[in-house]
Simulated assay, not measured.
Amino acid sequence: MDIIEKAERFEQEKTTFKTTSERIEASRKAKELILGLNEVYKQNKEAAIMDLMKRLTVIKQKIEKRLKGRLTV
């Protein structure tokens, strides 16, 4: 399976990760996909790949925000 197809499939999957381990796994998978897409982007310079990387980054940031939790003052 192509890295672009994997990334699109990950983007379409459910994004409700109930447990901490699911969130960690999803964050790592998103990072792996983003880095893989970056290697492809370096060769092709296609705007569609960059857009996909940006969307995955937003998903990854949301997951990591949930992992870190809220700051208590």
Rank of each mutant, 00 (worst) to 15 (best):
E11G: 01
G69Y: 09
L37R: 05
F10Q: 05
R28P: 00
K18F: 13
K42L: 06
Y41R: 05
K60D: 04
Q43P: 06
L67F: 07
T15N: 15
E5L: 11
I3F: 06
L33S: 07
E25H: 08
I63H: 02
K18G: 07
L33A: 08
F17C: 02
G69T: 05
K14T: 06
N44I: 12
I3M: 06
F17Y: 14
I59S: 00
I34N: 02
L37H: 07
T20Y: 13
F17M: 04
R28K: 13
A30R: 11
K60Q: 15
Q12E: 13
R23T: 01
E8N: 15
A7W: 09
L33I: 09
V58M: 06
D2E: 10
I4G: 00
K65V: 00
M53W: 02
Q12Y: 06
T72L: 14
R70T: 03
T16D: 15
K6L: 15
K68D: 05
T72F: 10
G69H: 06
I63N: 00
R9P: 00
G36Y: 04
V58A: 05
K42E: 10
L35K: 14
K42F: 03
K42T: 06
E46A: 07
T20F: 11
S21A: 12
Q43S: 12
S21Y: 11
Q43E: 14
E32W: 13
K65A: 01
K65W: 04
K62T: 06
T72E: 15
E39D: 12
E46T: 10
T16K: 14
K62V: 03
R23V: 00
G69N: 05
T15A: 09
K14E: 07
A47F: 12
I24V: 15
R70A: 02
